[in-house]
Design a protein around this nucleic acid. Sequence first.
RNA 1: GCCCGGGUGGCGGAAUUGGCAGACGCACGGGACUCAAAAUCCCGCGAUCGCAAGGUCAUGUGGGUUCAACUCCCACCCCGGGCACCA
Length: 825
Amino acid sequence: MKRYNPQQIEKKWQEKWYKSGDFKAKNFSKKKKFYLLFEFPYPSGDGLHVGHCRPYIGLDVIARKKRMQGYNLLFPIGWDAFGLPTENYAIKKGIHPVLATKKNTDNFRKQMKMLGLSLDWAREVNTTDPKYYKWTQWIFIKLFENGLAYKDKMLVNWCPKDKIVLANEEVISGKCERCGADVEKKEKEQWLIRITNYAERLLEDLNMVDYPERVKIQQKDWIGKSEGAIVKFPVEGFEDPIEVFTTRIDTIFSGTYLILSPGHKFIERHKDKIENLSQVLEYIKKAKNTPDIERSNLEKDVTGIELKGVLARNPATNEEMPIWVADFVLEQYGTGAVFADAHDKRDFKLAKKYGIPLRTSIIPKDEEFSHKVKNLEECYEGEGVLHNSMQFDGLESSEAKTKIILWLKEKNLANTKTSYKLRDWIFSRQHYWGEPIPMIFCQNCDWQTISEKDLPVELPNVKKYQPTDTGESPLASIEKWVNVKCKKCGGPAKRETDTMPNWAGSNWYFLRYTDPKNNKALADNKILKYWLPVDWYNGGMEHTTLHLLYSRFIFKFLYDILAVPESVGSEPYKKRTSHGVILGEGGIKMSKSRGNVVNPDIVAKQYGSDTLRVYEMFIGPFEQQIPWDQKGVVGCRRFLEKVYNLTHNKISKSESDESLKILLNKTIKKVGEDIELMKFNTAVSSLMEFVNEWSRLQINRGSSKKSGQISSVGLSKKDFKKFLVILSPFAPHLAEELWKVVGFAGFCSQQKWPKYNEKLLKEEKVFIIVQINGKVRDKIQASSGLTQGEAENLALDSKKIKEWVKENKPKKIIFIQDKLINIVI
RNA sequence: GCCCGGGUGGCGGAAUUGGCAGACGCACGGGACUCAAAAUCCCGCGAUCGCAAGGUCAUGUGGGUUCAACUCCCACCCCGGGCACCA
């Protein structure tokens, strides 16, 4: 008997598949299109580990099934290859990043082919390819032309170790996302993108898409919409009032002082009126130099300083209010100023510390607690009933909010206002290995775009890839490249030397897949119209607030400027799912430094790619984190061997055994539904159950093991075909091999996905659970479809039940057909 | 602090959404085959009492709803993730 030898089988089928071109998507095919997408990888020097493989395999299972269901499937692949790791590697080894990228993508490609992924390799894209980033630059130019890209001097997050400006998104609790160093603040000119213009649409349009609820919630939280009011606080002897954003205008009557952020322009503008200016400036200087990590430490004592010599007035009470500066008030949010009262912990703390008067205006429901609040012993931040609030006394917070706004609005002292936490997107990086920003600066004519015909602005060769200590990119040192002529006045001008962040290329790559070779547009309009939107996009949870939000934004922008056909709609991804990370054994993160990385090449070499695929799907719920278990792999190998051994014989029966036929039907239904829900683990286990049953049946038929010729019992040719087809998304190589061995025509991967027979799902014989008072006491076999009366008779007839019931009369009987009967005594 | 997940055998996990808790796989124990081992196959495998039939207890903890709770409600504990002075 032949032995299962995946190493031999797999290579052969991979070659045949890729040669046949079966996985190529066809533009404008009459079949229904389906665009299935996973996040394209960053080709690191370390290669893929088993964790990366999980989403690829999962989506490949879906892809193979969809194709069998008759879809014209687009399942593409590409490389997100700009970025720091490659640059750092270049710096360290002195190898050009282009070469390093080539080496890494070659390795990734080899690994992915080894997994038998049914990708369309003809549409491969690479973000570092000038033909690709020409269009990334084109998008930037369009952003600029539409007033969405601008340069501004600002305090940026500066990583002193990586010497790079970080986006807010790249700062994780005050530390650099990449290297973990404490992030500093530095003032720099930066390109920014007005993503904030799209805040409302990015929020609102979440209603149009099928994303997991937690993804939507994270996006919503990140956008951080809050509705409130701008209130004007007049300042004694000044024309301009201080404006304050608040969501709690119901507490306005307790506002006893104002707090400004250290960078508030009021201070600079009215410095001559501030009596203690030098102390104030010192405080501000200190606050600005405090790293965010310390500023955001809630345990920390609050600090502040009063602006002596200036006073504001509460527009509701008309009382005088001292003006303070405190570092916990943020410049970037709202108006950079707040009114302070007893209903905010920080305001409360600050007032207690410096003896600023406080007053309450909200009473909580709890009576004992409300005493403490009124006596200013405790700070109450919630909503409640108003007091100390003149004509609004006795109102609930929610009602008071609308009424107070109306009242102040009439006096022109307030207006409703919506605020967002989302900030504009810092788009410059001072690094080599990124797309050059296609802009030129002329002293006389200001910033100008590079003409479209001169795109791409290719990355020039440099001697050193390190960023400079001044924070400029290494491009700045190439004078020949930097100095150009202004296209307007012909005078001397300079190129922008900053490059784009990683996200630039990944914002729109899924558009390029539809038409990867186009050199007239980022993609042809008709082709975009055919393929878009992406029907199903899977990716990691870590990209929810970064890549997913950015790419939705860029897509909306492209939609607005008609670079994307209108019929497609303004959301790029119809459905989003996410996968869980695979952890090392023992549940710790897999990482090179821990030395617990499992290489798929080694697993595949030992057990075969199909085993690796099946195991990665079987290991646990797809969207959940799961530790790798090397010992567990063997179970999947045994399963495939069993399939191989069972079928490596003549399959000749014309009709399957009834029980197997029924089970096969159930399995077809279960596997199909589970794949759609990404419940791959239970799909695999139901395939295992089927194979176990089939195998058990053969052995019971008394076939001789000695002869090594297990006669094929139980499964007909027709049903065996169906089985191979539903197995094939998980173990495509084995399915293809057996397809051929048994002598079926064509490729298994080209077959139709089988339909199950609804009639066969209902079993004729069922087990009915008999319970006494909700506890299982017996199971009775009966034909399906029994009525309550029939079931009752059967149940009460049973010996065991008789013993339990004895003389007691049933008080109540609950009956669920074909399932359960519960006798309450 | 706030917002999401999650807690089930020795382990990874199932459980049609309120109806047999522990499918499937690993590990482990016993047996068959073998001179022997590996491989393979069969049996067992939550705890506890019992020779057994069978009983009792058990899904993080404590309460509740229900004929019936892993599933629903309330309170709490623990683990993972996200946000974090957002006015």
